[in-house]
Design a protein around this nucleic acid. Sequence first.
DNA 1: TCTCAAGGCTGATCTGCATCAAGGTGAGCC
DNA 2: GGCTCACCTTGATGCAGATCAGCCTTGAGA
Lengths: 255, 255
Amino acid sequence: MSHYVSQQSSLCQNCAMSGMCLDKTAKSVSKVRSHKIYHKSDALFRAGENFDAIYILRSGSVKSSLISDTGQEQITGFYFPGDLLGLDGFEKGVHSQTLKFLETSSVCRIAYNELDNAMAKSSSIRFKLLQGMSEALNVDDKFILNSHCMNASQKFASFLLNLSEKFESRGLSSHTFDLSMSRVDIANYLGMAVETVSRQLTQRQKEQTINVNKRRITIRDMQCLHDCVNGDNSLAKQYIPKVKVSSSHHSSVIY
Amino acid sequence: MSHYVSQQSSLCQNCAMSGMCLDKTAKSVSKVRSHKIYHKSDALFRAGENFDAIYILRSGSVKSSLISDTGQEQITGFYFPGDLLGLDGFEKGVHSQTLKFLETSSVCRIAYNELDNAMAKSSSIRFKLLQGMSEALNVDDKFILNSHCMNASQKFASFLLNLSEKFESRGLSSHTFDLSMSRVDIANYLGMAVETVSRQLTQRQKEQTINVNKRRITIRDMQCLHDCVNGDNSLAKQYIPKVKVSSSHHSSVIY
DNA sequence: TCTCAAGGCTGATCTGCATCAAGGTGAGCC
DNA sequence: GGCTCACCTTGATGCAGATCAGCCTTGAGA
């Protein structure tokens, strides 16, 4: 049984799962759950550990990674406040990913049985969870798309724009932000060499598209980044097989 | 309101969502839902269409794809009987993917409100759905891992082994099977050129690892494929940064 | 029987980026 | 101060696989 601390933080306001913390019977009193603080390079959980809860990131940032048979680490995502963590565990009751914090962060834990009870009662909680998982799925698929269709410049520009959007949606500056992950992490995530990431940073800075100071990025020409993603700006031209419009559509025979 | 046809097919036996079709009050009578047949290159749904149901593939095979801004198609997955389809739609209430059949296939449709009702009542249905989505997520992440760590030979061998496992788990031969997708589809999915796929097929056949006859594949040396995935067999050597074992672990301060 | 398009195979060439090598910077610590 | 280590940058070189070009096979339809 978990104990609730009767103090609600402003960080809870935008939480997708806030419905779980609000006590609907006592209208003014809200149940608030305990929060845990982690520090840089701590693990929230590791691959192979039992799954018994999902988490919501309240502040800070995390990376998720898989380890290949050969011992290589592959970062599969970066997460920011409001994001759901631990969704990989439902499949086997065991985590397949390892989650490591990139900086001092705070998370909110929701035990599975607690979640299941809430789902039984509330259609909106059911939907929120499915929506969260669906979003994670779509992010992954989009990433695969980019991974296969883009060259290094495009991937890197796309990465910066994604970060920019994430910060903006969280009420932070879309133009100036600090990278909480290292160049090595970025390279790993994007599937390229560190040297390539480094060269991208230098190149984009020379063009005045961005400004780089250690881990602080300032975007000076947002449009240029968008153009770069679309390949307008880069040297890269690719063979682009246009998608054929198939005539058959929603054919059907019921039996 | 949907009408149920009082005929249950053997295809329903292994369905993850069979709990939805069994009427638990009347123990011997089972509710069976309508099934729809589609043909090769029909679309189950297209990106942009409203989401109002998920589907279970009963027979045949499907590919899911995204279209990039530049009109490029990226195949994000192949699906086989028993797989859940349409999970991408929860996020925005609109499908982000397009699903096209690779051959004559049959699907079972579960409307969202019907699913939601079932989830309200049954913990096992809730779990099955979360499990299905979690699996999809893990498959994607594993794919990203492979995509970034493997060379063409490894990816292709891995692709064959994945298919082999899928067929085996469905009671079919793990050694001999027909590819329902074209070489172009395989190449697109794996993020390589068609020519590379073609060369892989030829090369693996020359080595006697597999036998190729049009779209019929016979695996003659399963172990060799596994070795290939692990890089033993391929020429490719890569820089492998071993994962550091961090000393800090599950640190915690509650506040 | 001929035509044509879709799908597939193979050899030659080119290039984006990984890899290798080496040097720079700054924080923490003795 | 000076040492070490983690992290980052830059230049030179090589190669896996994309791209290009051309040909073969198959099957549908006239």
